[in-house]
Simulated scan of single mutants.
Amino acid sequence: MRIKNVLFIFLTLVVLLLAGCSADGGKVTARDVLKQNQDADILKYDGLIYSNVTKLEWFQEKKNQIQKGEEIGKIKKVTTASLFFTNFSATKLPKGTLLYDTNDGYKGMIYVETEDGDALYYMSLLEG
């Protein structure tokens, strides 16, 4: 029950963030996200911020349709400092974690495989 409350709060914050954010030409920044949730699980790739959506209820049905595609890089830095949150930076993923695109037509999705073999899914955050 507590996880649902945390997920609801997180989704509410993301919606508010997306609705009110106009910095960086319509792109959500690490600063925007970390200002709302210091414990956010995000990464940056190709100038966009991606948020972990793996355990979100609405995503559960979609995740079976998403497959690992080509490798696109690996995490170079782990940080919660938004000032120097550059491409291939992450807040939770360990340095060296491989990132993959998806080969299923989903734009704005990154597939991550942990050392334990678990699949994680990150979705890009854009201003709405």
Rank of each mutant, 00 (worst) to 15 (best):
M1N: 08
R2L: 14
I3Q: 15
I3A: 13
K4N: 13
K4S: 14
V6N: 14
L7P: 10
F8C: 11
F8A: 15
L11C: 10
T12D: 09
L13M: 11
V14R: 13
L17Y: 03
G20A: 02
G20M: 03
S22Y: 07
D24T: 06
K27G: 07
K27T: 13
K27R: 14
V28F: 08
T29D: 07
R31F: 04
D32N: 05
D32R: 08
V33M: 09
L34A: 04
K35C: 00
K35P: 00
Q36G: 04
N37M: 01
D39Y: 07
D39E: 13
A40N: 06
D41C: 13
D41N: 10
L43K: 03
L43G: 08
L43D: 14
L43M: 06
K44M: 01
K44N: 07
D46T: 05
D46P: 14
D46H: 05
L48A: 12
I49R: 09
Y50R: 04
Y50S: 11
N52T: 06
N52E: 09
T54C: 01
T54Q: 02
T54M: 02
K55L: 14
L56Y: 13
W58C: 14
Q60F: 05
K62T: 12
K62L: 11
K63N: 13
K63D: 12
K63L: 10
N64I: 10
N64T: 06
N64K: 14
Q65C: 07
Q65M: 13
I66T: 03
I66Q: 00
I66E: 02
Q67P: 03
K68G: 00
K68W: 01
G69V: 02
E71S: 11
G73V: 01
I75D: 01
K76Q: 04
K77T: 15
T80N: 06
A81M: 01
S82G: 05
T86E: 08
F88N: 12
F88S: 02
A90Q: 10
T91L: 06
T91C: 00
L93S: 12
P94G: 04
P94L: 03
K95S: 06
T97M: 10
L98R: 11
L99N: 04
L99M: 06
T102K: 03
N103F: 10
N103V: 08
N103H: 14
G105Q: 06
K107R: 14
K107V: 01
G108H: 09
G108A: 12
M109H: 12
I110D: 03
I110N: 04
I110C: 05
Y111M: 01
V112W: 00
E113N: 13
E115C: 00
D116G: 05
D116C: 03
D116H: 09
G117A: 11
D118F: 12
A119M: 09
L120P: 04
Y121M: 11
Y122I: 12
Y122K: 05
M123P: 01
S124D: 09
S124V: 08
S124C: 07
L125E: 11
E127T: 10
G128W: 06
